[in-house]
Design a protein around this nucleic acid. Structure first.
Length: 584
RNA sequence: CGGGAUGUGGCGCAGCUUGGUAAGCGCGCUUGCCUUGGGAGCAAGAGGACGGGGGUUCAAAUCCCCCCAUCCCGACCA
């Protein structure tokens, strides 16, 4: 392709509305343009990248026996009503009506549609297992779309659904997808990790997220540097820290703590360690108020809490509510004598002896609070938010923390959807059984953005060879120098002939402009044709990633470039290989 | 949804406090000359009526009200 004819509108300045680097660079380098908040045009370069990622995904899905199909974006409300999610999904579901007033939605996911399809078409155990997938646009009316392609309202996703006879079959399918996912992201040149995750509203038990390490990521994950443990903090388990105590419970005692509101203020005023304080946080749920108790130096994991309380809504109460419910200003709530509130205590709290806690009275705390004796917990569970430095639940060594972008997630659904939607098969004995399902998503457009987050420098994007929109750009230094243009043209044609994806930058621009654009766009290789090349017959091949430059005789160019590309792809394949048959 | 901010040619911004004497700058774009190894130079041009609506005023980009859009923080997140 000739740059003079391609739509690659590069920008010199950073767009004012782009915050994260992938958003800035994709806009500046002419890959995307915004249409509305969270809705983007994918320009020719971006579409090429998307297609590259899709091709890798297809290969890996097919390798595991996946079959591609295509399901509708517009989905009838009836199916969603049948599964119960029409009401549960909330305002995030894009809803619309047709001219007859029938309700539809734009699919945010396709469990309903695929389950409907399968329940109608699959009747026998002989038809199972089945791995069906599609690559399709998805719609979620996010409350707050942000970060460009990282969190859009319209995005491209690959979703695969597995259908098995039983749990053992599901385990096999899950295993296959785990391997496929690791291979996909390795081949895309991403540094990632599979992490244990929370299954959220989709339900199901086992689930892993594939997370690309990046500071701009929205998920916080903890991982162990010594073993293979990694988990989203939303779900990370936290074995209680055992603190040996040789004290005997002492009598409860009230002390004045005037104006000491925070954990730090109270403990330093009383001269005790934060680990001795019981932090009491009030939450409002649809089932009433709940108090979460954790040690003073800990934070509450609201997702764990919500799960343990078995509620849909769980929000930290505001100060007025706290005052009303506890009878004291914010900062003086405690479990002792707290009534009308469900008390959920973290495991660690139950082991405390002679602890400090709020007295539900202004400017007052209790000393020598002993769980069980001074208050009863309605619920004892792991409620705390894991953070860096906490012990790894697998090997006990300190965990590290990092941020990441979730590019894929795999779930074991079980019979959640097949039961409500009535997707069953007849087994060998003629017995009807629910189909056991799994679902597996990869954010294609998000993966593209994540790749930019991980692969860029001050000058622009550095595409991995496997997903670069083009492999090479040929840059004649002067468009007015006939010999250079001729040589560039010949180089371009020889590369084209060799099957290399190449752009000839034939624009009448000064060399600086073309070099800057080449770096910004992120072609992995640049072939420069200047006077030196004309005189020596050797072309300059420069690697975008490290600036390394090699001079290659013109007749060897195509072969040389082919070799580099092959080597780079082989290297990625080698990384992918490591993940094969290497499951959770 | 709560809090904050912004909206002026394609992009980035100034002007708004103290209404009038102004729509201005840089980049980009067009034409010509010149230049050609890291976003050159000179010259001449095209392009906005200031997010939308209403109001105050002799007079509004500037003041007031409503709405919309966009971004940030939070909440939320198959």
């Amino acid at each position: 392709m000739r740059a003079s004819q391609l739509l690659i509108p590069t920008l010199r300045e950073v767009p004012a509305d782009a915050e994260v680097i992938s958003h800035q660079l994709l806009v500046r380098a002419g890959f995307i343009r915004k249409s509305a908040a969270g809705v983007y045009n994918l320009l020719p370069l971006a579409l090429r990248v998307v297609k590259k990622i899709e091709a890798i995904v297809r290969e890996e899905m097919d390798r595991q026996g996946g079959q591609e199909l295509l399901m509708p974006i517009i989905q009838p409300a009836e199916l969603w009503q049948e599964s119960g999610r029409w009401d549960v999904y909330g305002p995030e579901l894009f809803r619309l009506k047709d001219r007859h007033g029938r309700d539809f939605c734009l699919g945010p996911t396709h469990e309903e549609i695929i389950t409907d399809l399968v329940r109608n078409e699959v009747k026998s155990y002989r038809q199972l297992p089945l791995l069906l997938y599609q690559i399709q646009n998805k719609y979620r009316d996010e409350r707050r779309p942000r970060f460009g392609l990282l969190r859009g309202r319209e995005f491209i996703m690959k979703d695969l659904y597995s259908f098995d006879r039983d749990q053992a079959g599901l385990d096999v399918s899950y295993q296959k997808m785990y391997e496929a996912y690791a291979r996909v992201f390795a081949r895309c040149g991403l540094r990632f990790r599979s992490v244990e995750a929370d299954s959220g509203a989709i339900g199901g038990k086992d689930t892993h997220e594939f997370t690309v390490f990046a500071d701009s990521g929205e998920s916080v994950i903890v991982y162990c540097e010594h073993c293979d443990y990694a988990s989203n903090t939303e779900r990370a388990a936290s074995p209680p820290e055992r603190i040996p105590v040789d004290e005997q419970p002492a009598p409860l005692k009230e002390v004045a703590t005037p104006g000491r509101r925070t954990v730090f203020e109270v403990t330093s005023f009383l001269g005790v360690n934060e680990k001795r304080l019981i932090k009491t946080l009030l939450f409002e749920t649809e089932k009433g108020f709940a108090a979460a108790l954790v040690r003073g130096d800990r934070d509450v994991n609201e997702i764990k809490l919500q799960k343990e309380l078995n509620v849909l809504r769980c929000e930290l109460a505001d100060p007025q509510t706290v005052e009303r419910v506890s009878g004291a200003r914010l900062g003086f709530a405690g479990p002792v004598g707290l009534s009308g509130v469900k008390i959920a205590a973290d495991l660690e709290v139950m082991e405390m002896v002679n602890a400090v806690a709020g007295a539900n009275k202004d400017d007052t705390h209790f000393l020598n609070v002993n769980p069980g004796r001074d208050f009863k917990a309605d619920l004892v569970a792991d409620l705390r938010l894991v953070k860096a430095g906490d012990a790894c639940p697998k090997c006990g060594r300190p965990l590290a923390e990092t941020r990441g972008i979730e590019v894929g997630q795999i779930f074991k659904l079980g019979d959640k959807y097949s039961k409500v939607l009535g997707a069953a098969y007849l087994d060998e004995n003629g017995q009807a059984r629910p189909i056991i399902m799994g679902c597996y998503g990869i954010g294609i457009t998000r993966t593209m953005a994540a790749a930019v987050e991980q692969n860029h420098d001050a000058n622009g994007i550095i595409w991995p060879f496997s997903i670069a929109p083009f492999h090479v750009v040929v840059v004649p230094v002067s468009d007015r120098d006939e010999k250079q243009m001729e040589m560039a043209q010949a180089a371009y044609e020889s590369l084209l002939g060799a099957g290399v994806e190449v752009v000839l930058d034939d624009r009448p621009e000064r060399p600086g402009v073309k070099f800057k654009d080449a770096d910004l766009i992120g072609y992995p290789l640049r072939v420069t044709v200047g006077n030196r090349a004309v005189q020596s017959g050797e072309l300059e091949v420069r690697r975008r990633a490290n600036g390394e430059t090699v001079f290659v005789p013109r007749d060897n160019l195509a072969g040389y470039v082919q070799k580099i590309i092959a080597a780079e792809l082989a290297q990625l394949e080698e990384k992918a290989q490591k993940y094969s048959m290497n499951a959770p």
